[in-house]
């Protein structure tokens, strides 16, 4: 017993010294990620002020910020962002939920895997952008085909990783659940899903990325609102600063949604040996 406690104490001690080493460096951890963007922005602004770059090709950061602010004030920003968020969110929910259900289904049953998985794996290899013309022919350029395209893109990562996670549930733990007489429902909720959770969350993160990518594509193929439309529209009128605003918006929202999934991971995967945070 006492040897065990000593071992545990030593581990905690190791963690403590890592913290103090960080303090010694003098800069909070989160600040490191900002070093390069700040330097780049500084150089860029300086180059613009000195007239080294053309304002129509590469507007100064201050001008982009100004355009950003203007769009916020006149309400265009809210309109475009909310239109995009509804599209991306709807498509992601539809595709992700289908992927999760089908992934669990084919992961559990040999029969389901043999019949369904080969077809899904084949479809997965088709570049999604190649099916856009088909979607336009079938459903037009309306909202439905956009949401469907995003759903399709976010389906595959979730499906693939859920399937993998369910498959990789430990046979040895399965034997334990047989001895403990788990019900079928408990087997699913207390063994298979928790065991697959690291993979499922990875799939969700990849599919969030995919849904933003396809959102941009879908909105550029024709829309009346949305961040992608805003970029396309600004290009037509040569408003490079607004194009930059759109790109920055994608970056911000993408980072935000990624952080959200990471937060969920930190909450639910702290048990995982391989999880590094």
């Amino acid at each position: 017993m006492s040897t065990n406690e000593v071992a545990l104490g030593a581990k905690a001690g190791g963690r403590q010294s890592a913290v103090s080493r960080e303090r010694k460096a003098g800069m909070p951890k989160w600040l490191y990620g900002w070093v390069i963007p700040v330097i780049v922005l500084g150089l860029w602004e300086a180059a613009s002020a000195l007239g080294l770059v053309s304002q129509s090709a590469l507007p100064a950061p201050s001008r982009i910020a100004e355009a950003f602010w203007k769009l916020c004030v006149n309400g265009d920003m809210a309109k475009h962002v909310s239109a995009s968020a509804i599209r991306a969110g709807g498509g992601f929910l539809l595709g992700g939920a289908t992927g999760l259900l089908l992934g669990v289904f084919t992961g559990l049953g040999k029969w389901a895997e043999r019949t369904l998985d080969p077809s899904i794996q084949m479809l997965r290899t088709v570049p999604l952008l190649a099916v856009i013309p088909l979607f336009i022919l079938w459903f037009g350029v309306g909202e439905f085909s956009k949401v469907l395209l995003i759903a399709l893109g976010s389906f595959f990562p979730v499906y693939f990783h859920t399937h993998l996670g369910v498959r990789s549930a430990d046979r040895k733990l399965y034997e334990v659940t047989r001895i403990l007489q788990y019900s079928k429902l408990h087997l699913l909720t207390k063994l298979i899903i928790p065991a697959a959770l690291p993979n499922i969350l990875l799939g969700i993160r990849l599919s969030v990325g995919a849904s933003w990518l396809l959102l941009a594509v879908a909105e550029m193929m024709g829309a009346s609102a949305g961040v992608g439309y805003m970029i396309q529209d600004a290009r037509v009128y040569g408003q490079t600063d607004i194009v930059f605003v759109g790109i920055i918006l994608f970056a911000l929202v993408g980072k935000l949604s990624d952080s959200l999934v990471r937060l969920v991971e930190r909450r639910y995967l702290q048990w995982n040996n391989n999880y590094k945070g």
């Binding site: 334990v176 047989r178 001895i179 007489q181 928790p194 639910y268 048990w271 995982n272």
Partner: peptide, 20 residues
Amino acid sequence: TGPGVDKGFIFQEPRLFPWL
């Protein structure tokens, strides 16, 4: 006829659920 809680089993490895 099958496994059950009346016959407890301890394996060489603890086989705990890592997420609990």
